[in-house]
């Protein structure tokens, strides 16, 4: 993943979103409260993050920061998924102080798949099954010690799982 490009895109998206909010205020519609949504992201269902189409936007909405690639984040996933409706993926990390683990599929209509909160005492390792619309990069984000670490892998999908 090219971080500078995605950051640029995210910023651009943010500016566009800002313009949209301004337009909504102009129309007398009260938009969602962005800072509050970010602050509450830790204990409430991250509604906004699950509305973002693009991966970088979803990470921003979920965590409010960007991730750095780390080889301490390990993802176990197939090279080729024959059925995009059920792709088994697991993630684990050797990082300490892990507070959450999230899964994103960049080519899905909604990038964020799942975000798991890991309280103290729970091992930083999760297995689940996800849907993939088509061949895509799958990213695992690990939040540890307040910072974000990620690992990505391309998974080829022969039959998509998101319809169409």
């Amino acid at each position: 993943m090219n971080i500078t490009t995605s950051e640029f895109l995210a910023n651009r998206r943010l500016v566009l979103k800002g313009a949209g909010i301004a337009a909504l205020i102009g129309l007398g519609v009260i938009p969602f409260d962005v800072p509050r949504a970010l602050a509450a992201a830790n204990d409430k269902y991250p509604e906004e993050a699950f509305k973002q189409k693009n991966e970088a936007d979803a990470i921003k909405a979920l965590y409010g920061k960007t991730a750095e690639t780390s080889d301490k984040v390990k993802m176990d996933a197939p090279e080729i998924a024959e059925n995009g409706a059920v792709v088994p993926i697991s993630a684990t990390t050797t990082l300490s102080d892990v507070t959450s683990i999230s899964f994103l599929v960049s080519e899905n209509p909604i990038s964020l798949i799942a975000s798991y909160k890991i309280p103290a005492g729970t091992l930083p390792s999760v297995a689940n099954r996800i849907k993939m619309a088509k061949t895509s990069n799958v990213t695992v984000i690990v939040e540890a010690g307040g910072k974000l670490y990620s690992a990505s892998k391309e998974i080829k999908v022969t039959v998509g799982g998101c319809g169409g």
Binding site: Y45, P46, F50, A85, V86, V87, V105, N108, I110, L112, I113, A114, S115, Y116, K117, N128, R129, I130, K131, G161, C162
Partner: peptide, 8 residues
């Protein structure tokens, strides 16, 4: 677990 529609 916070899930979206992308979970199988």
């Amino acid at each position: 677990a916070d899930w979206g529609g992308g979970v199988s």
